[in-house]
Design a protein around this nucleic acid. Sequence first.
DNA 1: TTTGATGTACTCATTAGAGTTACAACAAAG
DNA 2: CTTTGTTGTAACTCTAATGAGTACATCAAA
Lengths: 146, 146
Amino acid sequence: MQISSRFTVAVHVLLCMELLKGEHKITSDLLASSVAVNPVVIRRLLQQLKAAGIVRVARGTGGAELMKPAESITLLDIYHAVECVEEGELFHFHENPNPLCPVGRNIHGVLDGRLAQIQRAMEREMESITLQKLLEDTREKICCNS
Amino acid sequence: MQISSRFTVAVHVLLCMELLKGEHKITSDLLASSVAVNPVVIRRLLQQLKAAGIVRVARGTGGAELMKPAESITLLDIYHAVECVEEGELFHFHENPNPLCPVGRNIHGVLDGRLAQIQRAMEREMESITLQKLLEDTREKICCNS
DNA sequence: TTTGATGTACTCATTAGAGTTACAACAAAG
DNA sequence: CTTTGTTGTAACTCTAATGAGTACATCAAA
């Protein structure tokens, strides 16, 4: 299975928030129109980002903004905020291997560490990419094609 | 979402094939009993591993075995064999960002490379782990607890 | 011809994701 | 204190992927 599109949508939304602030009030409708999904999907996503301390959302009056500087928000933070699965659980392990089989009895002991190692490699890479870098890349591209 | 348990089941199955050969004929029933799933699930999995050139399955008479030495089978090979998604598609990207928004217009250009970079990190780690290493780890553990 | 496997077509249940509608709760402006 | 424009959230549908299971035709070798 793939990692949910909530992740790429979340990055998209955060970029919008920083790049369009000033020009527009950042409402779920505006974000929904940029991403091209239903506004309710955006609102649900904003709730997850809020719970993770990444954004603030103004109820009533409307509008959302970052709660931290973009340099201190990494792709890993965003990933953890929007992915529902427990930390350290990228891989789905089959539950009840047969303890009577020498392999079934030991498969967890052999594999668990390896799987964690693979996941860590992915997370390290995510951690190395900040929202700030993506903002710079985006600004540069906007310059070229507008 | 998590990576399907087909992956860990596949690793389990391949370890069984090497460690139990000689002692038992490697049938889907035997493997199913060690993994604790339905034999049909195992047969379907073996078809995918066969298509990837990793195993040979004896129709009629029954029995399965590796087609390559365990040193030359990596976790990445197994992952590619059993995961249905296209190569390079760990992340699910939202399809139609709004080209009228400067962010929507550029989000693919900004993110695609980064996502590929993250996925490569994961795949490099998978590639570094061979079935042979896992076999050695398993033999060692079996020694200790039998 | 018997035997014990595999290969595969079905059906079914469960789960996660995503889309949509509807509406109560809310904050600020008038 | 009422209007206005939003957010927060419940309820529902739809789709796709996974996984479980049954049944049976196909097959190879004894």
